[in-house]
Structure formats: structure tokens, C-alpha cells
Design a protein around this nucleic acid. Sequence first.
DNA 1: TGAATGACAACCC
DNA 2: CGGGTTGCCATTC
Length: 105
Amino acid sequence: MKDFTEYVITIIKAIPDGRVMTYGQIAKVAGKPRAARQVSWILHSMSQKYKLPWHRVINSKGEISLKGSEQKELLEMEGVHFSNLGKVNLDTYLWEPDEEELLHG
DNA sequence: TGAATGACAACCC
DNA sequence: CGGGTTGCCATTC
């Protein structure tokens, strides 16, 4: 497994309940600020083989990309509040991982 | 090989 | 603020 993919998976697994991260944010933390699309690829590819909290990954607008899925409900169940526009307040719920969080696994 | 694709993001008007 | 365009990078055909 490539380092980038491995790191992305590590980060996603480290997202706490009730918090979210954006594709671009994850890519940036994983070392490739422009690789947001690879993060999406990793998600729809790996989430079928590994158990990842993929529902905590949303786009930069704070919206759900997979409309019609249960992603929004999963987040609400964890305490993430959606506006009447179906958006999340990133200032409140966006999570920025600490090195300790990732190293601790 | 070259072209098309995608659970995105930043810009521009 | 909304919609369209361009840039990105790995994967697939």
C-alpha cells in the first residue's frame, strides 16, 4: 500500500465521533494538498474493503456528496447538526488531527 | 500510450 | 451567491 493511501486511511480512522473532515483537508494533511480527488477515490475504493468512518468525510462546502445515501443520517446520529440547507457548519465540526492523535492510532 | 473518469477544490464572472 | 471553467492526480479502459 502506498504511503499516501496508508496515511489517508490512518487519518480517516482517527476522525472522532461528531466531527468531520473535507477531502482537501485530508489530502493536505496526508502530504498532497492537491490530491482531494484521490481521497475520494480511496474512499469509494477502500471503504468497501476496510471499515472506515467514510461518512465523516464531506466536501469543502460542508455538504454531503453522496445524496441518497445514509451518510447524513449517520452524522446526525453522532451529533453533527445540518442546517436547513443540508450543510454542516465547518467552523464547528471540522476536525484538524494532531500528530499525537495519528501516532496513537 | 492517450483519453476518459471521479464521493473534489479554487477561481472567475 | 450561483453556475460554469480549470486544475489535480491516480486509476481504468
